[in-house]
Simulated assay, not measured.
Amino acid sequence: MALKLDRQTTIAAIFVMVALVILGKLFYIQILNPDYKLSADNNVLRRITQYPARGTVYDRKQRLLVYNEAAYDIMVVPNEVKPFDTAAFLELFGITREYLDEQLQAAKEFSSRKESLFLKQLSTADFAKVQEYLYQYPGFYAQPRTQRHYPQPIAAHLLGYVGEVSNRTVFEQPYYKQGDYIGISGLELSYEAELRGQRGVRNYMVDVHNRVKGSYANGLYDTVAV
């Protein structure tokens, strides 16, 4: 009889321990873990990747060979897109209906919940024309970038160039995501790890009208691009 009670006590103790472990894990995930907090608030948050300025290149006489200029990519998250005035949208961005349909379809095929590149490398002047209207189109947002320039008409084969990453690169190298740029040839390729820097992220509060209202938690969960 005593042996039977000991077994029951042992089994009960095991169940209690397992329950405590599970409760402890849930407490950590939901209360202590900031990643869960960010995910839970995802309906009002927008995580914007901060890309560091790609490294500049000089020759031995300190002449600038490669530098950056500000540019903007327009990103789209298909699951967040709401019905909108198509004609006004096409006119605003200077694109065709075919381009719009193709890009949205490609974005949906990639992921309905993740961002995809919709329109790339808008200059500062072009972005200024669309910036104040962008909030009218939920699911679309601007991603700050830089654009490479090669002011000296020399050594193009040596300096190389950058281009958009391939799907294979995204699959093989987790650092990159769709729409990122990478060194394709020359010094841009050979010194890719040094030139690209390290990305950061900023979390913004976004209202129901797709307008950024400010930094989330005073930047507590942001990381700096270097």
Score class of each variant (00 low, 15 high):
2 A>F: 12
3 L>D: 01
3 L>K: 04
5 L>F: 15
6 D>S: 10
7 R>N: 07
9 T>Y: 15
10 T>F: 12
13 A>N: 02
13 A>F: 04
13 A>D: 03
17 M>Q: 00
23 L>W: 01
27 F>Q: 04
28 Y>M: 07
28 Y>I: 14
30 Q>V: 14
36 Y>F: 11
38 L>C: 01
40 A>T: 03
40 A>E: 01
43 N>A: 07
47 R>W: 03
47 R>M: 08
49 T>L: 06
49 T>P: 10
51 Y>H: 15
52 P>I: 09
55 G>Y: 09
57 V>L: 10
57 V>K: 05
58 Y>T: 03
58 Y>D: 03
58 Y>E: 01
59 D>K: 09
62 Q>K: 06
63 R>I: 09
66 V>Y: 03
66 V>H: 05
72 Y>H: 12
75 M>G: 10
77 V>G: 01
77 V>R: 00
78 P>M: 05
79 N>M: 05
80 E>V: 10
80 E>R: 08
82 K>G: 01
84 F>E: 01
90 L>P: 02
91 E>K: 13
91 E>T: 14
93 F>G: 07
96 T>D: 09
97 R>W: 08
97 R>P: 13
97 R>S: 15
98 E>Y: 06
101 D>S: 08
102 E>N: 14
103 Q>I: 13
104 L>A: 14
104 L>K: 08
112 S>Q: 09
113 R>W: 10
114 K>A: 14
117 L>S: 04
122 L>D: 00
123 S>P: 03
123 S>A: 03
125 A>F: 12
127 F>D: 12
127 F>H: 08
128 A>F: 04
134 L>E: 13
134 L>P: 07
136 Q>D: 05
140 F>H: 05
144 P>K: 04
144 P>S: 08
147 Q>C: 00
153 P>R: 03
155 A>G: 08
166 S>E: 02
171 F>S: 11
172 E>R: 08
175 Y>I: 09
176 Y>C: 07
177 K>T: 13
178 Q>W: 02
178 Q>C: 02
179 G>H: 05
182 I>R: 08
186 G>P: 02
187 L>I: 12
193 A>S: 13
195 L>G: 02
195 L>C: 03
195 L>K: 00
196 R>C: 00
196 R>H: 02
198 Q>L: 13
199 R>P: 00
199 R>E: 09
200 G>D: 04
200 G>W: 07
200 G>I: 12
200 G>K: 07
204 Y>C: 09
205 M>I: 13
206 V>K: 05
207 D>I: 00
209 H>W: 00
213 K>G: 01
214 G>V: 04
214 G>Y: 10
214 G>F: 04
215 S>N: 06
219 G>C: 08
221 Y>G: 07
221 Y>M: 04
222 D>G: 07
222 D>S: 09
222 D>A: 07
224 V>W: 14
